[in-house]
């Protein structure tokens, strides 16, 4: 369930197919996840999980795998 919500947030935030959302997907690994896409992704994750990231976490969130670890700090997870 949580995993589905994470995939949905990534897919909607980056406007990519859900199939592309794997742990390995990383910042600048695809055209859509550039710095502009990153901010939309952050908004999408924050809305989905009703949280507000610290700026350091916004900067550090560099892959789906890292996103899971960061989300756990905000009480979302474990995945």
């Amino acid at each position: 369930m949580l995993q589905d919500r994470l995939i949905k947030a990534f897919s909607e935030g980056l406007e990519i197919s859900k199939d592309l959302v794997t742990d390995e997907l990383s910042f600048q690994g695809i055209q859509e996840w550039d710095s502009v896409g990153h901010m939309t992704l952050i908004a999408s994750l924050e809305s989905e999980f009703d949280i507000m990231f610290d700026t350091d976490d916004v900067i550090d969130l560099s892959s789906v795998a890292v996103a899971k670890k960061i989300l756990e700090k905000y009480g979302v997870g474990p995945f």
């Binding site: 901010m39 939309t40 952050i42 908004a43 924050e46 809305s47 507000m52 700026t55």
Partner: peptide, 10 residues
């Protein structure tokens, strides 16, 4: 502005 922009972006 930085923090507001993040709330407003949602």
């Amino acid at each position: 502005a930085q923090m507001a922009a993040r709330l407003m972006a949602r």
